[in-house]
Write a protein that binds this DNA or RNA. Structure first.
Length: 802
RNA sequence: GCCGGGAUGGUGGAAUUGGUAGACACGCUGGUCUUAGGAACCAGUAUCCUUGUGAUGUGAAGGUUCGAGUCCUUUUCCCGGCACCA
C-alpha cells in the first residue's frame, strides 16, 4: 500500500462516498457564481460506454471539477435521450418492448457513467421517454402550434425506406440517411413542420455573439444560407399564370435568354403545349426516377426540354422560351430561374448544348468582349438599355426598384434553410397531441389533458408498412373524440422527431421533477448553459434546433434569454489506425479492458493526454503506460516523508510555475499540456527524499480535476479534510515563480552560437559585454565587422556581421 | 467546384504567438537491481558527416525579415462541411 495503490478499491470507495453525499448536488436555489456545465446527454443504445462517451464525459467532468475548485457553484446534470429509432430497433431485435429495454439499458449505462467518476447531479436526471417528460414535449408542440410555428403541409419529403419514416433535411447527408446510411427517396406526404425559417435571420445574426467554435458557426451559417437578391415575375404568353424566379443578379436581366423550371414545378403541367407534352412528360418521369444521388452528381451533361411556351421579360418585353431542366432544383428559391448564359456557367453550358442565344450584359471595362466565354463577376453593364455604362452593383438597385414599380418583383432575401420536418412514422417517440376531426379539422389536445400516452398494445415489427405509422394500428389509440364537437375523430398517428425532445431538455434540468410546467421559472435562473460540450456532428441538427426553440419560447414569453448555450466546445474523435471506430470496420477499442488493468483515473487521464481535446487522436494501446507510471510516481511522491528544512527556492519556483501553467491550461481545456506540466513537476521531485506537506497538498489539488478518485484518496491519507473538491484550486505566487537568472541565446547572423546565463536585472550594455565573453561566440565574431546588434529582452542577442 | 481546419523525430504531440524547434510521453538502445520481469531506477535517442558546442532540418517551391514551424505567394496531400443554391 505504501508504494502502490489499488485503484479498484479507491474507485469503489469514492464513488460510493460521492453518491451517498450531496457533494455533486449544488444548492440550486443559490445562483451566485453559478456555472451550468452541460454535456450532450447520452443515447441508451444498448451498448456499453464506448471511447466516444468517455472522451466526451471524462474531460468535460475535469473542466467542471476545475471550475468548482475555482469557486464556481457548478451544476453538472446528466440524462438520457431515450426515445428514438435505434432504441426502437434494438427492442424489435431483442423482441422486447422498447420501454423495457430502454429502462434496462439506462440502468446499466448509469452504472457505467458512475465509473467515469464524474460529478453528476443525479437528483435532476432526465429521461425523455417518460410521460413526466414527454408531456412537456407535447406542451412545447402545442405552444408552437398556438404561435403558428407548427403547421401541417403536403410536400415532397425525404423518405427513408429502410427506417420506414420521413426525415428532416438536416438528417440527410448526400442523399443518405444519417441513421442507417441507406439511400433516401422523395415522397409527397402531409407532415408536420416547425417554422424554423421564421428565425433564419436571427439565427444567423446571433452567431456573432456566441463563444462557439468558428467552424460550427460557419456550418450553421452555410446551412441557413442567406442570399441577397431579387424576385422577378415573368408573365407567360397565353396564360394568366406567372412565373416567379429568384436571382442574385437582377442586374443581368437583359441577358436572360430563357427561363428554366425544375421538373417538379407546379405550373409545368398546366402551361405545357400539346405538341411538347410527350417529351416534357417523359423528361419529368426520368427526373423522378433518378435517385437523389444521381441528381446531385455534378459532372453530368446538362439536359432539358423546351415546353413550347414563352415568358415575357418585364423590363424589355422580350419573349424568351421556357424550358424544363433538372439542373434547377425545386427545393430552393422558387424552383425556377431566369437563365443568363453570359453570366452564369451553368446557364452558359446549357445554352451551348441547346444552342440558345447568349447576350453579353456585364463587361469588366465597359467594352464588348463577345460571348465565347461567360463572365460571372460584377463590372459595367452593357446591352442593358438605359442601364448600360453603369456599374452593375448600382444597376442591381435600380433594376430592383424598377421591378417594384412595375409590380414585377423586387429585392428579396432567400434562405437555404427549410422548415423542420418533425413527423416520424415510428412508435418510440413523443405522440403528436393532435386530433383530426372531419368537422373541425385539426384540433389540438387541450393542455390540461396532457400527456397523450403512447399506447402499449402495439405489435412492433421490423418490417414497417409504407407511411402507416405504428400508432395507427392501435384501435384504442387512434379513435378519439373531438375536443371541440364531441364527434368521433382520429388521433394523429405520427410521433415527433427525437430532436424535438433534445431541443429543450437543458431548460428542465435545474428542476427536473417540476410538475407545474416544462421548466421551473426559478430554475431558469441557471440558464443559459455556461458551457456545453458535445460532438461536432450536431452542428446543423440539435444545436440549430435548440437555438430555434429557445428563441421561439422567448417570443412566447417563457424565456428571457436569446441563446441557450453561451459557450460551446466540441471534443475531437478518437480513431483507431487512422479510421473512425465502428463495429462494421471491426476497429473498436473497448474501454473496459483498460479500466480493468489501469483504472478509470488512468484511462480518462490518458484520453486527455493524447492530444488537444478538440482534435481527438489515434488510439494507441501502449501510450497509457506513460500515465500509469506518472500516477504511480504521484502516489509515491505523496507518500514521501515530510521535510524538516525550509523548501529550496528552486522547489518553490517549480511549484508556483506549475500552478501557473496548469491553471492556465485547464482554463483553456488544454488538458494534454496541463498533464505534461504536472509530469515535469513530479520529475523534478523524483530525487527528493522528503518534501514539504504544502507541495503534496498542492499537487493533489492540481491533479484532482483530472484524476478525482486518486486525488480524494491521497487527500485523505495526507490528512486533508472532507473532500479535495471543497478546496480552492491553488493560486500561484508571481514573486515565488520568478527566476532571478535567465538564459540568453546568442546568435550570429541568426545562427545559434551559444547561450549565457545572466541576471534578470542586467542592463543592455552589460548584457552585450557578458555575451561577448562566450568562447564560441568569440570564435565566430573574430575578424568580422559587427553591423548590427539586436537585443530581444529576456530572450536573445543577435549579432549581424560581415 | 466552393468554404473551413490541418501536415513538426520511429509514434502521440509541445513551442511563451516572429526569438535557443522537438517540452512531456510512447517506443527503441544500453546499464543498475533482481531467481525472474511485461516492475522500478539511471543514461542515450531528429538527420547527416569530416564528431565540430559542425552542417542540415517543421509536406514542397519561392518570398519578407537580423531572425520564420509561426507572416506572404504558389503548390501537393489529408480531414470536415456545403454543393447544378440561381
Amino acid at each position: 500500500m505504501k508504494n502502490s495503490y489499488s485503484f479498484q478499491k479507491i474507485e469503489e470507495k469514492w464513488q460510493k462516498r460521492w453518491n451517498n453525499s450531496e457533494i455533486h448536488s449544488p444548492d440550486l436555489t443559490n445562483i451566485k457564481n453559478k456555472y451550468y456545465a452541460l454535456t450532450m446527454f447520452s443515447y441508451p443504445s444498448g451498448d456499453k460506454l464506448h471511447i466516444g462517451h468517455w472522451y466526451n464525459y471524462g474531460p468535460a467532468d475535469t473542466y467542471a471539477r476545475f471550475m468548482k475548485m475555482k469557486g464556481f457553484n457548478v451544476f453538472q446534470p446528466q440524462g438520457f435521450d431515450a426515445f428514438g429509432l435505434p432504441a426502437e430497433n434494438y427492442a424489435i431485435h431483442h423482441n422486447v418492448h422498447p420501454a423495457e429495454s430502454t429502462e434496462k439499458n439506462i440502468n446499466t449505462m448509469k452504472k457505467q457513467l458512475d465509473s467515469i467518476g464524474a460529478m453528476y447531479d443525479w437528483e435532476n436526471e432526465i429521461r425523455t421517454c417518460t410521460p413526466e417528460y414527454y408531456k412537456w414535449t407535447q406542451w412545447l408542440f402545442l405552444k408552437l402550434y398556438e404561435m403558428g410555428l407548427a403547421y401541417q403541409k403536403t410536400a415532397p419529403v425525404n423518405w427513408c425506406p429502410s427506417c420506414g419514416t420521413v426525415l428532416a433535411n438536416e438528417q440527410v447527408k448526400d442523399g443518405i440517411c444519417d441513421r442507417c446510411k441507406e439511400p433516401v427517396t422523395k415522397k409527397e406526404l402531409t407532415q408536420w413542420f416547425f417554422k424554423i425559417t421564421d428565425y433564419a435571420e436571427e439565427l444567423l445574426e446571433n452567431l456573432d455573439q456566441l463563444d462557439w467554435p468558428e467552424k460550427t458557426k460557419h456550418m450553421q451559417q452555410n446551412w441557413i444560407g442567406k442570399s441577397v437578391g431579387a424576385n422577378i415575375i415573368f408573365k407567360i404568353n397565353g396564360f394568366e399564370d406567372k412565373i416567379e424566379v429568384f436571382t442574385t443578379r437582377s442586374d443581368t436581366i437583359f441577358g436572360a435568354t430563357y427561363l428554366v423550371l425544375a421538373p417538379e414545378h407546379p405550373l409545368l403541367k398546366k402551361i405545357i403545349q400539346p405538341e411538347f407534352r410527350g417529351a416534357v412528360d417523359s423528361y419529368i418521369e426520368t427526373a423522378k426516377a433518378k435517385t437523389e444521388i444521381e441528381r446531385m452528381s455534378l459532372d453530368r451533361e446538362k439536359t432539358g426540354v423546351f415546353t413550347g411556351v414563352y415568358a415575357i421579360n418585364p423590363l424589355n418585353k422580350a419573349e424568351i422560351p421556357i424550358w424544363v431542366a433538372d439542373y434547377v432544383v425545386s427545393s430552393y428559391g422558387t424552383g425556377a430561374i431566369m437563365a443568363v448564359p453570359s453570366g452564369d456557367e451553368r446557364d452558359f453550358e446549357f445554352a451551348k448544348v441547346f444552342n440558345l442565344p447568349i447576350i453579353e450584359v456585364v463587361s469588366i471595362d465597359g467594352k464588348l468582349h463577345g460571348t465565347d466565354e461567360c463572365y460571372i463577376n460584377y463590372g459595367i453593364s452593357v446591352n442593358s438599355e438605359e442601364y448600360s455604362g453603369k456599374p452593375t452593383v448600382e444597376v442591381q438597385t435600380l433594376v430592383n426598384a424598377k421591378l417594384e414599380e412595375l409590380e414585377c418583383g423586387g429585392a428579396k432575401i432567400q434562405f437555404k434553410l427549410h422548415d423542420w420536418l418533425i413527423s416520424r412514422q415510428r412508435y418510440w417517440g413523443t405522440p403528436i397531441p393532435i386530433i383530426h376531426c372531419t368537422a373541425c379539422g385539426i384540433v389540438p389536445i387541450p393542455i390540461d389533458e396532457l400527456p397523450v400516452l403512447l399506447p402499449e398494445d402495439i405489435k412492433l415489427s421490423s418490417t414497417y408498412g409504407n407511411e402507416l405509422s405504428p400508432l395507427a394500428t392501435s384501435e384504442s389509440y387512434i379513435n378519439a373524440v373531438c375536443p371541440l364537437c364531441g364527434e368521433n375523430a382520429k388521433r394523429e398517428a405520427d410521433t415527433m422527431d427525437t430532436f424535438v425532445c433534445s431541443s429543450w431538455y437543458y431548460l428542465r434540468y435545474p428542476n427536473a421533477k417540476y410538475e407545474d410546467g416544462p421548466f421551473d421559472p426559478e430554475g431558469l435562473k441557471w440558464l443559459p448553459v455556461d458551457c456545453y460540450i458535445g460532438g461536432a456532428e450536431h452542428a446543423t441538427m440539435h444545436l440549430l434546433y435548440a437555438r430555434f426553440i429557445t428563441k421561439a419560447l422567448r417570443d412566447g414569453g417563457y424565456l428571457n434569454f436569446d441563446e441557450p448555450f453561451t459557450k460551446l466546445y466540441h471534443q475531437g474523435t478518437i480513431t483507431k489506425d487512422g479510421a473512425k471506430m465502428s463495429k462494421s470496420r471491426g476497429n473498436t477499442v473497448s474501454p473496459d479492458e483498460f479500466i480493468e488493468n489501469y483504472g478509470s483515473d488512468t484511462f480518462r487521464a490518458y484520453l486527455m493526454f493524447m492530444g488537444p481535446f478538440d482534435e481527438g487522436g489515434d488510439w494507441n494501446d501502449q501510450g497509457i503506460t506513460g500515465i500509469d507510471r506518472f500516477l504511480k510516481k504521484v502516489w509515491r511522491f505523496c507518500q514521501l516523508p515530510l521535510a524538516d528544512e525550509v523548501p529550496s527556492k528552486k522547489d518553490l519556483q517549480i511549484l508556483h510555475q506549475t500552478i501557473h501553467s496548469v491553471s492556465d491550461d485547464l482554463e483553456q481545456m488544454k488538458f494534454n499540456t496541463a498533464i505534461s506540466r504536472l509530469m515535469e513537476f513530479i520529475n523534478h521531485f523524483s530525487t527528493h527524499e522528503a518534501v514539504g506537506r504544502d507541495f503534496k497538498m498542492n499537487m493533489i489539488k492540481m491533479i484532482a480535476p483530472l484524476t478525482p478518485h486518486i486525488a480524494e484518496e491521497l487527500w485523505e491519507i495526507n490528512g486533508g479534510e472532507a473532500s479535495v473538491f471543497l478546496e480552492a484550486f491553488p493560486e500561484y505566487d508571481k514573486a515565488l515563480a520568478e527566476e532571478d537568472t535567465m538564459t540568453i541565446a546568442v546568435q550570429i547572423n541568426g545562427k545559434l552560437r551559444g547561450s549565457v546565463e545572466v541576471s534578470k536585472q542586467i542592463e543592455k550594455a552589460a548584457l552585450l559585454t557578458e555575451v561577448r565573453k562566450n568562447e564560441n561566440v568569440n570564435i565566430h565574431l573574430s575578424g568580422k565587422e559587427i553591423i548590427k546588434e539586436i537585443v530581444v529582452p529576456q530572450r536573445l542577442v543577435n549579432f549581424v556581421v560581415k
